[in-house]
Design a protein around this nucleic acid. Structure first.
Lengths: 144, 144
DNA sequence: ATAATAACAGTAACGATTATCGTTATTAAT
DNA sequence: ATTAATAACGATAATCGTTACTGTTATTAT
């Protein structure tokens, strides 16, 4: 009992997640699928994402406010832009991860199940956008 | 204007955070300080923790449900026990972090402000505790 | 002392996520 | 093919960590 059954919605959600190179939040997936699945519920997204994470078909990544999801579970790094909130992959040399894992296991007396390496910063696009002025003086020189 | 003023509560919160080797959540700090500061408000904890993070006196770390706070901001790794939720430090060789940072900067066209390396797993204490039985058969062999 | 206001305690509001509940759809057995 | 059992759904309420608001207190400068 408690067998997992087939579901068109679940297939669509996983396919959408796997087909993206960014790492969408539940809400982003919801809007991306709304066109093809007008009756889709946000609860269904969350329910299935949780299941994916439990079965090793996805992992959660901490974002600014909401969590992001990634269908690639093999160790790799991420970058989160603190400005726009977008998350992207960062492919560091796999041997680096092996070394991190080894060093960590050598020091930690327990079981290490997952490794998360995340850089937070400002992406090139956001860095190019002039920021909100901090002082009245700066505002007078600004573009608006 | 907007100058930051002295505050006994803020000092107490920062001191408590700095004095701990674990990385408490806002609520944990709250209960830890309640004895000495009976009138302390949870909002005050959050308000000051946010300020600490803005001024570089602390950093946020993603936990199971709530966020954890760490008064040490220089790059180091963490382990989160998915069972008990406790977070602890993991001191990997600093050169490793330098290499991670270099590799990341070489690949990412933007500004990398912080690096978070976190392992999730099961700590030794929790691993020693017999888990909830999964089957009726296993329950009959269990300790309760 | 007095005035200005940052920071407080208390509490309401918010937002992401989870749980509930009645209905639908998948699966297996008849 | 029907039927029965129930996993999964859509809709919505509840939860909970966090933030925002409000009137009061305490710090700082005058």
């Amino acid at each position: 009992m408690e067998a997992t059954r087939k579901s068109k919605q679940r297939d669509a959600i996983l396919q959408e997640l796997q087909g993206r190179r960014d790492h969408p939040t539940a809400e982003e997936l919801y809007f991306a699928l709304k066109d093809r699945w007008p009756a889709l519920s946000l609860g269904t997204i969350y329910r299935n994402l949780t299941q994916f994470c439990q079965t090793g078909q996805a992992q959660r990544l901490p974002g600014r406010s909401a969590e992001h999801f990634d269908a690639t579970v093999q160790p790799h790094a991420h970058v989160l832009c603190l400005q726009c909130g977008r998350m992207s992959d960062l492919s560091l040399p796999p041997p680096l991860f092996d070394e991190l894992q080894q060093q960590a296991e050598a020091e930690f007396p327990g079981e290490l199940l997952e490794i998360k390496l995340q850089f937070n910063g400002i992406c090139a696009q956001c860095a190019a956008i002039p920021q909100k002025a901090e002082t009245p003086a700066a505002m007078r020189q600004g573009s608006e």
